[in-house]
Design a protein around this nucleic acid. Structure first.
Lengths: 343, 343
DNA sequence: CGTTAGCACTCTCGGTAGGTGAGTGCTAAC
DNA sequence: GTTAGCACTCACCTACCGAGAGTGCTAACG
């Protein structure tokens, strides 16, 4: 991108800020008065038509104001934008509100998504921590009734999963002991990716007659290990799509996209940079061609564990949203890492 | 409602079925051919204008076909409709798919809602079992790390809740024992409604120096008891609102209503009959004046524990949806009651 | 050469008019 | 009570007009 004169930069920034605020194409007069009438509207018109020329602005039709193009937003985000953070008291409120869920990663990410949706008026997507290289730290059996028990699995990367198992045989102290012996010797300390079907099968073969009692439990553990590796998504503020008129044509396709699951999941997992802003067709899915996605990874310890971010129209207050998302990702990471340290 | 001649009943039913299928106002000719030309279109026109007269039909404008009024749907549901059940193989699929969650009531209801949304193309709402008269059956402490532990609370009415607690002091065997002594003597067997703030306070007073260690746990238990009493809602298929053109004007208000929480909750809890069909303005919320709600309660043991149902347009295939919802409510009840029996 | 004033031009938007067709309501006959 | 015939109504579509906002261009200015 060629260098722009300072005035053109100022004009571009002004157009974007006005357009983001109003949603209306911005005319030369409006910019003129916004810039304190330091130059005439004719001058601005000249500059604007240059900006259209190089693709940073668009005009919906010949005789309307200008709106930013995707490239215009991109230039703004990369070069012009001056970000402004959340207020201190707002940061504190969020921190306190999230703290109560800091022990339960799934709930924490769900709530963080809800907060983000509220904060941004966009659809918020968050993924619970997952890690295919996580290690099993602990497995507990919690008897609930004579025939049901809860299995709780704690893994590295701040991951906690549980499931309820029903057994045909009565769950008593003996069975619990067998369970602990098996899990201690064969599961705890292992990488969750090693708990494959063949692993379970060879294990089962060596169990002798305890196999019948144990198999539902072993299956459950294998499911839990699978869950540790799997990205679990939380979607919040879906109704916010309807808040943005520029998305209303796509509303149905977007909703459908959000619920299809897999593409959204790969969207999150394919992020490479810690913070990723994809504007319009920069997104790899054509359903998002009129949308912007902003996602930030959060780390547990020093490992990326998941992401949180938003999907909204391209017309967004980038200067405000980007710091908010960064802040949330940071706080999630620190909460989840806390649990980790306390070994 | 005055008695209708058999032919008028047939005309009303035909109009409703055609209108439900196509969404277009139904003309006399269409009815005529649908009824096998047994009478002429003029005759049908006469009958139709009688049906408009008594309020069972409406005409969008003078020269369009007729559509059912709310009262028309009501008459159809009460008198004319012949319901048709889900296919056996579909019932089996649902059963098997839900079975795997039968131990975890919250997940079970969530999945049931997802299935219902899929099945009906409507927004599905389900509530996890809750019961302010439930008794605490069991409380377990699961140590996760030196400073965190999970508390699992099992109550009657098939309710299972858990939370993670962080403690400043190290969680060791001694503390676990103290925990078990306290919960066994003061909590297990009690009605969840008796675990009030004052109860906790008097208990704390009698604890002596163990209070500092125990208070986070006791707070968590009190929160869990609160959760047992609280209706937890699961919303699924929200994007289906956009599938129904007649709701698109209300889409935003509806979405907003769904997310406001409290009114939706009271909608579910205020249901008196086991199955409740509210058409249009029969709903107590004006946001739903163009919608139909169909909700069925499910029972755990012989006690109503929660509800499941849908919110959709008034133009619904009542004959198919009502049995589906009944079936799901029945299966949920039987799964949750199963766990109960196994004491 | 960058900047500015002036002015004709373009295009959207809202409102209005005429034509079309589906479906009705009424009347008179069966 | 039922039916055929026919005039009538009303939404929908298209075309058209006028107003207004904003531009693009040209010529003059410093």
């Amino acid at each position: 991108m060629a260098e722009l004169t300072p005035r053109k930069q100022q004009i571009l920034a002004t157009i974007i800020e006005l357009y983001v605020a109003t949603g209306e194409p911005v005319g030369s007069k409006a910019i003129c008065s916004e810039m304190g009438n330091s130059v005439s509207s004719a001058t601005i018109r000249n500059d604007m038509s240059d900006l259209v020329e190089i693709g940073l602005l668009e005009q919906p039709h010949t005789s309307a104001g200008r709106i930013p193009s995707q490239a215009g937003y991109r230039y703004y985000v990369d070069n012009l934008m001056t970000t402004y953070e959340l207020g201190i008291e707002e940061q504190e409120r969020i921190k306190i509100w999230l703290q109560s869920f800091s022990g339960e990663p799934d709930k924490l990410l769900e709530k963080a998504g809800a907060i983000l949706a509220e904060l941004t008026d966009c659809v918020a997507v968050s993924s619970s921590p997952s890690d295919s290289e996580a290690f099993i730290k602990r497995i507990e059996l919690v008897p609930l009734s004579n025939h049901t028990a809860m299995i709780v699995l704690l893994a590295t990367s701040g991951i906690l999963k549980s499931a309820v198992v029903r057994s045909d045989t009565e769950i008593n102290v003996d069975i619990a002991e067998v369970f602990y012996n098996i899990t201690q010797s064969y599961f705890v300390g292992k990488n969750v990716s090693d708990i494959t079907l063949t692993f379970i099968q060879t294990l089962v073969a060596s169990l002798g007659d305890r196999v019948f009692i144990m198999s539902p439990f072993l299956c459950a553990i294998s499911d839990l290990c699978e869950a540790v590796k799997t990205t679990e998504l939380h979607l919040k503020g879906q109704s916010n799509i309807l808040n943005h008129p520029e998305l209303s044509d796509d509303a149905f396709r977007l909703m459908d996209f959000l619920h299809r699951g897999t593409p959204l999941e790969s969207l999150l997992t394919s992020q490479k940079a810690p913070l990723n802003v994809a504007i319009g067709t920069e997104n790899s899915y054509r359903e998002l061609k009129n949308s912007t996605t902003i996602f930030s990874k959060y780390a547990v310890g020093d490992k990326d564990a998941g992401s949180i971010g938003i999907i909204g129209p391209t017309r967004l207050d980038y200067a405000k949203l980007i710091p908010s998302i960064k802040y949330l990702a940071g706080i999630i990471g620190s909460f989840l890492s806390e649990t980790l340290d306390e070994e």
